[in-house]
Design a binder for these strands. Structure first.
Length: 626
DNA sequence: GAGTTTGAAACT
DNA sequence: CAGTTTCAAACTC
C-alpha cells in the first residue's frame, strides 16, 4: 500500500475539518497536541480504506470510513457542518478539484442525518464510502451538499476535492477552525498542519508527486495573490488552502472566511460564473468520429472548455492549455493559434455541437414534462448507475420515451425548455465535472458526466452547465433506489416531511457560483424544436456572460421554488439526451417541476409509458398533467 | 532547485 | 473591448 503524501495531506485535511469542530468549542487558537496523533490514526484508517475500498459500497453501510473516522467524538463519522442559510454552495470546488481518477463516492444514510439543534449547525452523521483512493469527503462545509446526498438516500459519485474543505458559505466556514492560528503575513498554509509540514517543503516535488499519484487535490503555491484570486487553484476551486499548499500570505483559510467570501463575491460580481466549472462535459458518448486516439486509449471528446483557451505558443499541447489540461478538445470558442490539441482541434468540436443540436431537434419529441421527468429519472439513475463501475461501461442508452413506444414521431414536439431551479441542481453539477488530470479514468468519468449532465454541445450553456432539476430528482427520496422516498420536490413545502426536507432546509442553497442563471423551471421557446439560430447558438457559447447577478442571489432562498414566469426567457436545457442513459436506469418517477410549470402541455407518452413500466408510478397523475 | 515559459486572470 | 500587467502553474535545464 502506497499512500502518497499528498493523500496524507488530504486525510489530514479531513481530520482538520473534524478537528475543527472540537477546536471551535475549545480554543481555536491553540493547537491540540492530540491532533497529530489523531491525524495519524486517521491516516492509517484512511489508507486502509483507500487501499481496500475500491468498490462502491452499499449506501446502507454504517461502517465509518475515513472521513468519519476522523470524528473525534464518535465512531461514526460525525461531520458537523453548518446549516447554510442560503449561502452558495461552491460546487466548483467540488468539480474542479476532483480528479477523474479518484471520484469520491459519498453515500449518506438519511437516517444518519440528525440535527443537533435548530441552530445553524447541525450534526450530520454520514456514512461515507471512499472509492478508489479518495481520502476524504469534501462536503465543503456545506451542509446542503450533504443534505442533498442524504436526501437521495442514494449513493452517488460525488466528485469533490479529496481533501479540501470548500467554503461555500460563510456560516459553514466558521465551523472550520484550523487547529492553529494562521498569520497570513508570515505563514504559509503549510503551517497549519503538522502532518503536512513534512510534505510541503517542496511544492514542486509535491506537485510531481501529486501528478504521479493522480492526486488532484488543489494545492497552490501562491505568493502574491494571497490565495484570494483565481490564480489560486484552491480559491478558484472554492476550497480552503490546506495541507498540500505552499502558499504564502494565504488568506484563503477558514480564519478569513469573511475575506474569502467577500473576495469571492467581488469576483463573482465581475463574472458570475467565475467559479463555475470550466469544462463542460458532454452528456452522451460521442460518436466514433468524435473520439480521438490518445495513445492506446480512445479519448472521447467528452466536453470542452467553457470559454475556450487562448493559447499562442503551446499549440494546445501542453498543460498551459486549459483545454488540453482538461483532456478536452478545443472548440470554436477557443482563440488558440495553431491548435494541435490531441483531444480535438479547434473547429472539430463545433461539429459536435452541431450534431448535438440536430439531436436536440430530433429528440424534442417528448413533452416537456416527460422530458423533465425522464431527465430527472435519468439523472438520478445515472448517478446511481454510473457511480457503479460496472455501469460505467458504455451502454446503449435508450431514450425513455422511445423505449416505451414513444417514438419521436409519436411524441409531441415541445419547443419549450425549462430551466430547473438553481436550488435543485447546483449542488450536484460540479460533482460531475471532472478535472483533466486523470486521463486514465477520463473515459469512464466522462460517461458519468455525460450521464449526469446535458451535453454542453447540445444545449445552451446555462443549461448544461448545471445539473438542473434532475438533480433534485437525485435528491428526491421518493426516487431513490434506497426507498427512503419521502420528500416530493414538487412541493417545496414538503421539506419537513422527508429526510430530504430536513436536508434541504428552506434556508437556502446559494448557487451563485454555479447557477447564476438558473431561475427555476422556466418554459422557454427559444429553441422551438427547430434549428438554432446563430444568435441562439451564440448564446450557447456565451452562456456565462449574460447572467444577471440577481439570479445568483435569487437562489439564496431555496425554500421557494423559483417558478419563473414563462415570459422570462431562461433557456432551459433540452433534456434531449436523457434517453442516452437508458430506460433501465430509471428508478422511479418524480414530478418535481410540474407544479412549477402549471401551464404546460399535458404529459403523455414518456411518463405514462414509464408508469406502465411500473417505475414511475408513485407520483400522482395530477403532477404529470401539470 | 532555479529560472523560464506560458496563458489565465486581473487591471487599465 | 483591447492592450497590458500580474500571477502562478507548467516546463526546462
Amino acid at each position: 500500500m502506497v499512500v502518497g503524501q499528498s493523500q496524507l495531506g488530504k486525510r489530514r485535511r479531513l481530520q482538520f475539518e473534524t478537528a475543527q469542530e472540537k477546536i471551535v468549542e475549545n480554543d481555536p487558537g491553540s493547537e491540540n497536541p492530540n491532533t497529530a496523533g489523531k491525524s495519524e490514526i486517521l491516516e492509517s484508517s484512511c489508507a486502509d480504506i483507500s487501499s481496500t475500498s475500491h468498490n462502491i459500497q452499499p449506501t446502507g453501510s454504517t461502517q465509518s470510513t475515513c472521513p468519519l473516522s476522523l470524528s473525534q467524538n464518535t465512531r461514526n463519522a460525525s461531520l458537523t457542518v453548518s446549516k447554510p442559510s442560503g449561502i452558495g454552495l461552491h460546487l466548483n470546488s467540488i468539480v474542479n478539484a476532483r480528479p477523474l481518477a479518484c471520484p469520491l463516492n459519498v453515500s449518506v444514510k438519511p437516517t444518519d442525518v440528525t440535527y443537533s439543534s435548530a441552530g445553524r449547525k447541525k450534526s450530520i452523521s454520514i456514512t461515507s464510502h471512499m472509492q478508489n483512493n479518495m481520502q476524504c469527503t469534501s462536503f465543503s462545509s456545506n451542509s446542503n451538499l450533504v443534505e442533498n446526498v442524504s436526501a437521495t438516500s442514494e449513493e452517488y459519485t460525488h466528485e469533490t476535492p479529496p481533501s479540501c474543505p470548500s467554503y461555500n458559505n460563510a456560516k459553514s466556514m466558521k465551523i472550520i477552525e484550523h487547529e492553529d492560528k494562521f498569520d497570513p503575513g508570515s505563514l504559509n498554509s503549510g503551517q497549519t498542519g503538522r502532518v503536512d509540514e513534512l510534505d510541503r517543503s517542496n511544492p514542486k516535488k509535491k506537485r510531481k508527486k501529486t501528478e504521479s499519484t493522480d492526486d488532484d487535490c488543489k494545492h497552490c503555491n501562491c505568493k502574491k495573490s494571497k490565495c484570494l484570486k483565481l490564480y489560486c487553484d484552491c480559491f478558484a476551486a472554492g476550497i480552503y488552502c490546506a495541507g498540500p499548499c505552499s502558499c504564502q500570505g494565504c488568506f484563503n483559510r477558514p480564519e478569513y472566511e469573511d475575506t474569502v467570501l467577500e473576495t469571492r463575491q467581488q469576483i463573482e460580481s465581475r463574472n458570475p460564473l467565475a467559479f463555475a466549472p470550466k469544462i463542460i462535459h458532454r452528456l452522451t458518448q460521442p460518436p466514433r468520429s468524435q473520439i480521438v486516439e490518445d495513445g492506446d486509449q480512445l479519448t472521447p471528446l467528452a466536453g470542452r472548455h467553457k470559454r475556450g483557451c487562448n493559447c499562442k505558443k503551446s499549440m494546445c499541447l501542453k498543460k498551459y492549455c486549459e483545454c488540453y489540461q482538461a483532456n478536452v478538445g478545443c472548440s470554436d470558442g477557443c482563440r488558440c493559434e495553431d491548435c494541435q490539441n490531441i483531444y480535438g482541434k479547434k473547429g472539430v468540436s463545433g461539429t459536435i455541437r452541431e450534431m448535438g443540436m440536430e439531436v436536440i431537434n430530433e429528440k424534442l419529441n417528448c413533452s416537456f414534462d416527460d422530458k423533465m421527468k425522464v431527465g430527472s429519472i435519468r439523472s438520478r439513475s445515472s448517478l446511481s448507475e454510473f457511480q457503479k463501475p460496472h455501469n460505467l461501461t458504455p451502454q446503449t442508452p435508450s431514450f425513455q420515451c422511445s423505449n416505451h413506444g414513444n417514438d419521436a414521431s409519436k411524441a409531441r414536439v415541445l419547443p419549450g425548455r425549462y430551466l430547473p431551479s438553481p436550488e435543485s441542481e447546483s449542488t450536484f453539477y460540479p460533482s460531475y465535472v471532472s478535472t483533466p488530470r486523470s486521463p486514465k479514468n477520463s473515459a469512464s468519468f466522462d460517461m458519468i458526466m455525460e450521464a449526469s449532465n446535458m451535453n454542453s454541445e447540445m444545449v445552451p450553456f446555462g443549461q448544461d452547465l448545471y445539473p438542473s432539476v434532475e438533480f433534485m430528482d437525485e435528491c428526491s427520496p421518493g426516487c431513490t433506489t434506497s426507498g427512503t422516498a419521502t420528500g416530493h420536490l414538487t412541493s417545496m413545502g414538503d421539506w419537513s416531511n422527508s429526510s430530504r426536507a430536513q436536508l434541504l432546509p428552506p434556508g437556502g442553497l446559494s448557487f451563485s457560483s454555479l447557477c447564476p442563471r438558473r431561475s427555476s423551471v422556466t418554459p422557454v421557446t427559444l429553441f422551438g424544436g427547430t434549428k438554432l439560430t446563430d444568435s441562439q447558438q451564440k448564446s450557447i457559447d456565451n452562456y456565462d456572460d449574460d447572467t444577471p447577478n440577481i439570479l445568483k442571489d435569487s437562489s439564496i432562498q431555496p425554500n421557494k421554488v423559483k417558478v419563473t414566469s414563462p415570459n422570462k426567457k431562461r433557456i432551459s436545457p433540452p433534456r434531449i439526451r436523457l434517453h442516452e442513459l437508458g430506460s433501465n436506469s430509471l428508478k422511479s418517477g418524480r414530478k418535481f417541476i410540474l407544479k412549477a410549470v402549471p401551464s404546460f402541455p399535458p404529459l403523455t407518452s414518456c411518463i405514462n409509458s414509464k408508469d406502465n413500466t411500473g417505475r414511475i408510478s408513485n407520483d400522482p397523475p395530477a403532477d404529470d398533467t401539470l
